[in-house]
Write a protein that binds this DNA or RNA. Structure first.
Lengths: 212, 212
DNA sequence: CTCAAAACCGAACAGCGTTAGGTAAGCGAG
DNA sequence: CTCGCTTACCTAACGCTGTTCGGTTTTGAG
C-alpha cells in the first residue's frame, strides 16, 4: 500500500535520477505501480509533496555547532552541512531555494541559528543579518554549482573571451572549484565578521562562554 | 506586426505583473493580439525567449569599476549593479539564477571581472574563485529576498519559535533587512579578501595601478 | 460478520508547449 | 501589373501536465 513516506522516497529517487522537470505525478505513480489520482489521497498537491521532501532534506542540517558558544564555529558547521544537504540532491536545489515558505524544519533551524548568535554576543539585528547572509552564500553557491554555469564545449569560448580561455576546463574541475570558492567565500566572510565583532566592543576572538 | 523586441517586452511585463508561472505562450500571444503559434515565427522555444530576456537584463550589470585598477571598488560596483538588475525583475530571478548557460552577456561580463581581478594583482585561480563567490552572494541574496522567506502571518510564528517572535515583522521590513544583510555580507567578504590579498604579499590596501 | 472509513481507479477537464499545414499579405523581378 | 517567393500569421491538433469527480475496492475496528 502507498504511504506518505514511500511516495516521498520514490519522488526523491526520480528527481535525483531524471531531474526535477521530469517528475510528474503520472510518472511517480507508475514508479509505485499505482494510478496518478491515488497520490492525492496522501498529498494534497504536487507542491505539498515537494515541500515535504525539501523539509526532509533540510532536517540534515546541523546547527549544533552553536552550543559551544563559539559563533564562528557554529556558522561554519551550519553553512557546511547546509551546503552538503543541498549538494546531496542538486536537482532539488531550486525547490529548496525558492522559499522556506512555512517549512517546519527551516524555521526551527533559523531559530537555533539566531539564538546561537545572540547567545554568543551578537546584537539581535546583526544576528538576523548574519543568518540571512550565510544563507545567501550557501544557497547562491548551491544554485550556481548545480545549474552548471559553464559549458564544457570548448568551441564556444575559444578566442572569444581571452581571460576565459581555460573556461572549458572549469567544467572538469567544477566540483573542486565550487568547493574552494565556497570555502574562500565563507572564510573571507567570517574574517570580515570577526572585525565587525571586535568593533562592537568584543575582544577579538573572544566568546561568551555562558550568559552575561 | 510582431517583433522579437515587442515579444520580449510584453513577456517581461507579464512576468513582472503576474509572475513567472503565469506566463504562458497563449497568454503572451493574447496580450499581443495574436495566436500562440505565431510566436514561434520569432522564437524557437519559450526557453529561448526567457534566455533572451535574461540576457537583456544582465546587460545592465556594470563591470566598469575594474577599470580603475581597484579590485575592491570593481567588485563592489559589480555586485551592487548585479543585485540591482535582479531586484528590478524579482520574478525572473529563478531564470537568471538557473544558469548562465551560454548567455552572451553573462560571459562577456565574467571575462571582464576575471580580467580586472588579475590586472589588480590577484592570481588567476583566486580571480576565478572570487568571481564565483561574489556571484554566490548576489544570486543567493536575490533568491532569498524575492522568494519571500518569511510569512507575514503572525499566528504561524507566535510562541513556537521564541527567538523569532518578531519574525512577522521581518516581512514589513524585508526590503530593508535584505539590503542591509547584503551590504553586511559584501563588506565582510571584502574585508576578508583584503586580508587574503595582504597575505599574498601585497601591501594592505595597495593596488596595481598599471600592468607589471 | 458488519459497516464505515480510507485507499485506489478510470475518466475527464482545462491548460500547457509545440508542430503541421494552410492562407494571406508584402515585395522584388520581369 | 503580375508572377512567384518569402514571411507572418492562423486553425487545429498532439501529447503532456496537475487535478477533480464519482464510483469501486480494500482495510480494520467493533
Amino acid at each position: 500500500m502507498l504511504s506518505v513516506r514511500g511516495i516521498r522516497t520514490a519522488a526523491l529517487r526520480l528527481i535525483d535520477r531524471d531531474g526535477l522537470e521530469n517528475l510528474s505525478m503520472r510518472r511517480l505513480a507508475q514508479e509505485l505501480d499505482v494510478q496518478a489520482a491515488s497520490l492525492y489521497s496522501h498529498y494534497r498537491t504536487k507542491e505539498d509533496l515537494l515541500a515535504d521532501i525539501a523539509n526532509e532534506i533540510m532536517a540534515e542540517v546541523d546547527v549544533s555547532g552553536f552550543e559551544s558558544g563559539d559563533w564562528r564555529h557554529g556558522l561554519t558547521v551550519w553553512a557546511r552541512s547546509y551546503r552538503a544537504a543541498l549538494a546531496a540532491h542538486p536537482n532539488l536545489v531550486p525547490v529548496i531555494a525558492a522559499g522556506p515558505g512555512r517549512r517546519e524544519a527551516a524555521l526551527r533551524r533559523a531559530d537555533a541559528v539566531h539564538g546561537g548568535l545572540v547567545a554568543a554576543g551578537w546584537p539581535a539585528r546583526h544576528a538576523t543579518m548574519i543568518g540571512a547572509s550565510t544563507k545567501y552564500l550557501v544557497v547562491g553557491a548551491a544554485i550556481n554549482s548545480f545549474a552548471r554555469g559553464f559549458d564544457a564545449d570548448v568551441q564556444v569560448y575559444r578566442d572569444r573571451y581571452p581571460n576565459l580561455s581555460q573556461a572549458h576546463r572549469l567544467s572538469e574541475h567544477a566540483a573542486e572549484i565550487d568547493n574552494d570558492s565556497f570555502e574562500l567565500a565563507l572564510s573571507a566572510f567570517l574574517d570580515g565578521l570577526d572585525r565587525t565583532f571586535a568593533a562592537l566592543g568584543h575582544e577579538p576572538g573572544a566568546q561568551h562562554a555562558g550568559g552575561d
